[in-house]
Design a protein around this nucleic acid. Structure first.
Lengths: 330, 330
DNA sequence: CTGAAAGCGCTAACAT
DNA sequence: ATGTTAGCGCTTTCAG
């Protein structure tokens, strides 16, 4: 077992409350006693027991983060940024991978609550959150994905300017002479996807593209599935420009197009969404709408910290996106 | 605040110890009281306070996992497998991203220990672990990376058959007519890298390759750096076969080679290591030595659970690898 | 400026 | 079969 506050107190010849005061910098302590305590602490290699502290304080120093797929670079990068910011504020991150499963998400929310986390940041896997979520008073910040139920939560929601991303993609294609367009979206993240789609299709139509030259499809966020689906899709609706709802989908689609002998960007131009670093390394590099994951993580963390500190302001925070031209566009 | 065991006891008209017994299935309880307690628990929406439980039991239900880079698909996939297995055993995973920094690694180890985790699984970022790690009695399992100091720990070490992977890569190149060879390794993971290198170079030499036709270089695990370094390297030592210590490095090297106008696999053949899924999607697909991350995660989890349960057996566990032929080899 | 003591929610002897 | 009670390690009134 590790040492306790009693051992430190004994060694320093003071009471445990004095030790507590010194170590937490709360209340008074003369310089002399302060020094004695510090020395004793170091000699013993004493460290506070966070569990006991949490029990007494009725709160841990943890903040939970739920992401749907940690192996997806976008979420990994977001998680990394959140962790960094939170550590800066003195919190520990409790990272949970929900694997796109509402059931696992629910399990983790319960577990997080049982462990007295101070707040939860959620990139939701589904749309039917546990009712208990609505009852709890723990601060919640929603990021990137917002189901129809979730918006009833008294929380802050953070997302990128998805619609603008769609507009940017459409303009980029138009400028580069594309004629027949496809939007290939992610089935799960309906809100973001419909915004991206909206910006994309409306810009196309307002620039004179006819409805017969535009088509859309929603699939699960998976490179494997995208690679497969895009082939059949091309058979049914040959196109020369495809806007993918995520870079992951873009990666699969690109490979699928290559499989059926299409040249990128000569035959088909392609734009992804997210801006994962990986997109720089494929041949050709993936043109994309970049989200600022670093900023998103920072803002998410700061929002949850604010809520924990009692800030009452709520609402949606919109983050900028930008078009990155790489090899998949002419 | 959430409910306490006292409220349940009151509602069910029993004592708190009875509630505890029923909920933890420990000790006796008649069917009738059991039912009463269950009902009261549900009506109140009561959930055990894990913090209090942990304090009382002198242990949390957490197991810590340290990985150097969660955005690297190999570690993400490993983490995912560990999490799944651990949850199966009833543990919660406390996932920490050390960003290849020994300092952050140390910080997390302290934090994990302060939070009374039951065990720690480490894919180490560096080579000089905190001395406190050696003093603690918390079970430790080391995975994939083992520094010279770390082997003094009384722990289980789990790695792939790295040397065999090198042999496999050499044979694959030889069979496909390669003449001048390069090994491009990861600077951090010295043990695994030197094993891969050893298997590779020794197989080459024993098959008649001369020392002047083999060269090696160690760089940080980063696609960005690999992309850059491989160009200079090729200038100095033109080669027609490159074995990369990780798929991440392979990805960067491949792009770098493409940048200077080389054709893969025509001019240069390439083999990576790890077997990340991403390698299927590049054009051409990355031939690689596949590690079984799923198995590695499972074995790591089971090892830590065993240690927690008091199993005394220690040692190194070797996991199988296999060669996956894709487009970067002829 | 410092110490004594209560109690956070829970489990596990021990008593009944 | 069930209840009483001590105490896990810590913080925080409240006295002194």
């Amino acid at each position: 077992m590790s040492r306790t506050i009693y051992e430190v107190a004994k060694k320093a010849n003071v009471s445990i409350s004095t030790v507590s005061r010194v170590l937490n910098n709360s209340g008074y302590a003369s310089e002399a006693t302060r020094a004695k305590v510090i020395v004793a602490t170091e000699e013993l290699g004493y460290r506070q027991n966070r569990i006991a502290k949490s029990l007494r304080n009725q709160q841990s120093n943890f903040i939970g983060l739920l992401v749907p797929d940690i192996a997806n670079e976008f979420f990994a990068s977001l998680a990394s940024s959140i962790e960094l910011t939170l550590r800066h504020y003195g919190y520990n991150l409790f990272l949970c991978n929900t694997r796109e499963s509402q059931e696992i998400e629910n399990h983790y929310i319960e577990s997080l609550l049982d462990n007295q986390v101070q707040g939860i940041i959620i990139v939701s896997a589904g749309r039917k959150p546990k009712p208990s979520l609505f009852k709890c008073t723990t601060p919640i910040v929603l990021v990137d994905r917002l189901g129809p139920e979730l918006n009833k939560l008294n929380s802050i929601f953070i997302e990128s300017e998805n619609e603008k991303g769609g507009v940017l993609a459409a303009k980029a294609f138009l400028k580069r002479g594309a004629k027949r367009f496809v939007f290939l979206g992610d089935q799960r993240n309906m809100r973001a996807m419909s915004h991206r789609k909206k910006g994309f299709s409306e810009t196309l139509f307002s620039h004179g593209v006819s409805e017969t030259d535009y088509c859309e499809m929603m699939i699960p966020v998976s490179a494997v599935i995208a690679r497969h689906e895009v082939k059949d899709f091309y058979e049914a609706f040959p196109f020369d420009a495809i806007f993918c709802g995520t870079d992951n989908i873009a990666l699969g689609a690109m490979r699928g197009l290559y499989d059926i002998g299409l040249e990128i960007p000569t035959d088909v131009q392609l734009i992804g969404f997210d801006g994962i670093q990986l997109g720089e390394f494929t041949v050709p590099g993936i043109s994309t709408i970049r989200q600022d994951t670093h900023l998103m993580g920072k803002v998410s963390s700061e929002s949850i910290v604010k809520m924990i500190r009692g800030d009452e302001s709520r609402g949606t925070i919109l983050l900028p996106v930008e078009f990155i031209a790489r090899g998949t566009t002419k």
